[in-house]
Design a protein around this nucleic acid. Structure first.
Length: 472
RNA sequence: GGCCCCAUCGUCUAACGGUUAGGACGCCGGCUUCUCAAGCCGUUAAUCGGAGUUCGAUUCUCCGUGGGGUCACCA
């Protein structure tokens, strides 16, 4: 018998990572067993189900790389549910019960005739679970013949779709016995159950939208990669029994097993997720990283433009700044900036923040220099001018094509810097270029902004130092 | 509260009677370095408590304690 699993979310809100973790496990198991994976939208609650939530579920699953073999919507299966209710009534497993609700509404509810006794099932992760269902009483399975409720619908759908393994959150453990009761009354084969430990928020309570759990699509929008999200989700409450942590989808499919699933809840740790994302970013090809980064970088830079505009007017990078977008020149620089960015971010949102806070400004405009910070730790302005002058002359004498690679640039002045004291030479150079106390090394910066701009900035620092020297 | 489940570093976890209780994230420190980032190395940190069983308990049993889930005409 081939394995059939399903993911059966309700489109009554945006689903969070914990919900999708359930989908991941059901999916991995189905793929591993060369089985069939069903996506079933449980929208029997008409009042709360919304099309946009359903759309978000589909979108999220596709993004994660969880593809389904068949799709069903519970609301499309009303006829089957009604037939089942009729069968239940005809066989005296259920009956009509005329009742008045708390709000005073009268209706003919359909109640399941509970035989009582102990129901036992062997959970794939928890082992045998026994429940005395006597106390449940005759529970309600439909509001009326046209409005079947959750338990009835689930059992009918799982039964008719021949689901062999029900993988779901362990908040359903308490529901299982009554579903088994309905199942037996309807004559369906009992599936295997695998109840997954709940995913907790930082407060150790069940992850929920109300307590601030983010929708999966929010993580996507923040720049998380589907691969890292899948990897992370799979490792919440499950481990392969080895020390491997980075898993491709195929590897997860192969390694997954129910015995590696924990029996207790696990906290959704965003720090770890960030780490996973960074690991995947680091593993990307240059082209893929560019595709991942450039749209965000361009967008962020465009927003940053007002702050950059002033200097665009007076530098060599001025073309087209007023046109409302970043210039070709800027785009070229952005492309060169990619390696620098890669070692500094975990998500593209980090990049957005960097640009927004002006951390990248000096690549696109001349920095405004605080002249007192140009000399290295207690170095004199006079010596600093001398060193900058030397560096400048060395650069001028060198051929243009040496300025593409940071290592080459480094080799031009490294011996001089070592001889003089690297700090005394490199700090003023780097500061002249960036105006920042913290930045990548000067060689990297030069390779990005180019020789012409480098010389211009050195000249600015030079002039500033001389002017301050005269006035003191 | 009833019922059910769970319990190893702050977090995710390994150990399936015998280990200096291992790994990862984070934190902290060092190396490298003009600064930052990265990288490399390292430190700190845990078996909830109490009884048993056993030559020996993280591991098995019981009792506490703590945490979580669930108790709808929601799913």
């Amino acid at each position: 018998m081939s394995v059939i699993t399903r993911f059966a979310p309700s489109p009554t809100g945006l689903l969070h990572g914990g919900n999708y973790r359930t989908a991941v496990f059901a999916y991995l198991f189905a793929r591993q067993q060369k089985g069939h994976f069903i996506l079933r939208i449980e929208d029997t609650d008409k009042a709360r189900s919304k099309p946009e939530y359903e759309a978000n579920i589909l979108e999220s699953l596709q993004w994660l790389g969880i593809d389904w073999d068949s799709f069903a919507r519970q609301s499309d299966r009303l006829a089957q549910h009604q037939a089942a209710v009729k069968r239940l009534i005809d066989s005296d497993h259920a009956y009509l019960s005329h009742e008045t609700s708390a709000e005073g509404k009268e209706s003919d509810l359909i109640r399941f005739r509970n035989p009582g006794g102990v129901i036992t099932f062997d959970d794939l992760v928890r082992g045998p679970i026994n429940t005395d269902v006597t106390d449940l009483g005759d529970f309600i399975i439909a509001r009326n013949i046209d409005e079947p409720l959750f338990h009835l619908a689930v059992v009918v759908d799982d039964g008719e779709m021949s689901v062999t393994h029900i993988v779901r959150g362990d908040d359903h453990i308490a529901n299982t016995p009554r579903q088994i009761l309905i199942q037996r009354a309807l004559g369906f084969t009992e599936p295997r159950y695998a109840h997954l430990p709940i995913v907790l928020g930082p407060d150790r309570a069940k992850l929920s939208k109300r307590r601030g759990a983010k929708a999966l699509t929010e993580y996507r929008d923040a720049g998380y990669l589907p691969e890292s999200m899948l990897n992370f989700l799979a490792l919440i409450g499950w481990n392969p029994g080895t020390e491997q942590e980075i898993f491709s989808k195929d590897q997860l499919v192969e390694a997954f097993n129910f015995s590696g699933i924990q029996h207790h809840g696990a906290i959704f740790n965003e720090e770890k997720l960030r780490w996973f994302n960074r690991e995947y970013l680091l593993r990307m090809t240059t082209d893929d990283f560019s595709t991942y980064t450039m749209p965000v970088l361009k967008e962020a830079l465009t927003e940053r433009l007002p702050a950059l505009a002033f200097s665009h007017a007076e530098t060599s990078m001025k073309e087209g700044a007023a046109a409302g977008g970043i210039t070709d020149m800027d785009a070229t620089i952005a492309q060169k900036l990619l390696p620098v960015i890669r070692e500094r971010i975990s998500t593209s949102n980090d990049l957005r923040t960097m640009v927004g806070e002006g951390e990248l400004d000096y690549y696109f405009k001349k920095p405004i220099l605080d002249v007192t910070k140009i000399p290295f730790k207690g170095g004199s302005p006079t010596d600093t001018v001398k060193h900058l002058q030397h560096v400048k002359e060395t650069f001028v004498k060198s051929s243009q094509d040496q300025f593409k690679d940071p290592e080459n640039i480094k080799s031009l002045i490294w011996d001089y810097a070592t001889e003089i004291g690297r700090g005394a030479v490199l700090w003023p150079l780097r500061f002249a270029l960036t105006g920042a106390e913290r930045s990548p090394d000067p060689f990297t910066v030069i390779s990005i902004i180019g020789l012409t701009e480098t010389l211009a900035r050195i000249k600015v620092a030079h002039n500033l130092l001389e002017a301050s020297g005269l006035s003191t």
